[in-house]
Computed example of a mutant assay.
Amino acid sequence: MGKLLSILRNPNSKDVDVFVDFENAQPTEQEEVTYRNVENVMQQAKAVLEDMQGYKGATVEIREAINNPHSEEAQQSAWEAVQKHVDNLKSYYDFSKQIESVVVLLLTDLCSGNMTSMEHLEQQQALFRQFAQVLDYTLSFDEAKMVTPSVQNDFSYYRRRFNQLRMKADNSQMEDDQGMTSEVQGRMSLFFAESRPMMKCVSDTTSRFVLEHDDIPLENITETLAKMAAICRVMITSTVYRDRLVNNDTVMFILRVMVGVLILFDHVHPNGAFVKTSVIEMEKYVRVLKQHAGNTNLLDALKYTSKHFSDSTTPESLKKTFA
């Protein structure tokens, strides 16, 4: 099992000075069932992400159809072109539903029971690693989607054209070739309309988890998320820990995970992550992102995907650090 080394714990500090083996942590016997269930889903993540990153779309054909609204040939050409991509779009949406189920499994195991948050993260580090992989995928998917406007444009055209064909057929229950009803298309349309759809999916799922699992104290969840964020920050700022990382990409992986758990904390904590009294101490995280995240949009993701950043309780001095 990948080793979680607890080097120093100061009970009066909000920092957690540990090294988590995000690269190699393996499940214990107690983690095995959940780990395998999650692994079955996450094995698909790389393929879905690469498909999203390589998405080309039907921009040319759709533009031609819009510029020639009375040309049936142009409309048919655009319809045929966009149909080739609908399976891809449906797979992105369907996978978001699987991600939701995985988030629930992991939060249940990492936040329930009699163990403290640190005991969970120490003794269930393989599940912590999987939760980190979910957040890494989530933010990576959203980064790719934000620079691929053809995703939303393609589906908007597809849905508009499908409704035209449905009206011609006078069949309100008509399904397309992929078996999607108008209702399913509506949900997909809302999903792709979000600038960061996968993060919204995960944050909404986490918020529902809090509401639907009143047997798990809210403090268990917020403390676990806060500890996760602190671990990530310390691993980035400690040269000793960074030198232990084998893969060059792991630093960005940890930064994405850090931002992801901060966003989730802000969504589920009643006061959010930005208030002056928050255990999070957001200024430290902003400094880390500015120093180590380069030109990535992680700082924007934290700012615009959070729930409480724009609240009046967020100090103006903190808001200025995001500039």
Rank of each mutant, 00 (worst) to 15 (best):
M1E: 15
M1K: 12
L4N: 09
L5R: 14
S6C: 07
I7C: 03
L8T: 06
N10C: 08
N12R: 13
S13D: 06
N24Y: 14
A25V: 09
Q26G: 04
P27G: 06
Q30L: 12
V41L: 02
Q43S: 02
A45T: 10
V48D: 09
L49S: 10
Q53C: 08
Y55T: 00
K56Y: 10
A58E: 14
I66E: 14
N68G: 07
P69Q: 10
P69C: 04
S71W: 04
A74L: 05
Q75T: 05
Q76W: 06
S77E: 15
W79S: 14
W79V: 05
V82H: 02
Q83M: 11
Q83W: 06
K84S: 15
L89D: 08
S91P: 00
Y92R: 03
Y92G: 03
S96R: 06
Q98K: 10
I99F: 04
I99P: 00
V103W: 11
L106A: 10
L107Q: 01
T108F: 05
G113V: 02
N114I: 13
T116E: 06
H120V: 11
H120L: 15
F128G: 02
R129Q: 02
V134D: 03
D136R: 04
Y137H: 05
Y137G: 03
T138M: 08
S140W: 09
S140H: 08
D142I: 03
P149S: 13
S150F: 03
Q152W: 15
Q152A: 12
N153I: 12
N153D: 15
F155P: 06
Y157A: 06
Y158F: 11
R166K: 05
D170F: 13
N171I: 08
Q173Y: 10
E175L: 09
D177A: 13
G179M: 08
M180H: 10
T181W: 01
T181A: 05
T181Y: 03
E183C: 02
V184F: 07
V184W: 08
G186E: 13
M188K: 07
S189M: 08
S189R: 02
S189I: 05
L190D: 14
A193Y: 13
E194H: 12
E194R: 12
E194A: 08
S195I: 11
M199I: 15
K200W: 04
D204C: 07
T205M: 01
T205L: 01
L211I: 14
E212L: 03
D214C: 03
P217C: 07
N220M: 09
N220P: 01
E223I: 12
T224N: 13
A226S: 05
M228K: 03
A229W: 01
A230N: 05
I231G: 01
V234P: 00
T239Q: 14
Y241Q: 11
R244T: 12
D249V: 12
I254P: 04
V257M: 02
V259F: 04
L264D: 00
L264S: 00
L264F: 04
F265H: 05
F265W: 07
H269S: 11
P270W: 06
N271H: 04
G272P: 07
F274N: 00
V279Y: 00
V279W: 02
E283M: 09
V288S: 01
L289E: 10
Q291D: 11
H292C: 05
A293Q: 11
N295L: 13
L299I: 15
L299M: 13
D300M: 09
Y304E: 11
S306T: 14
K307E: 07
A323W: 11
A323P: 04
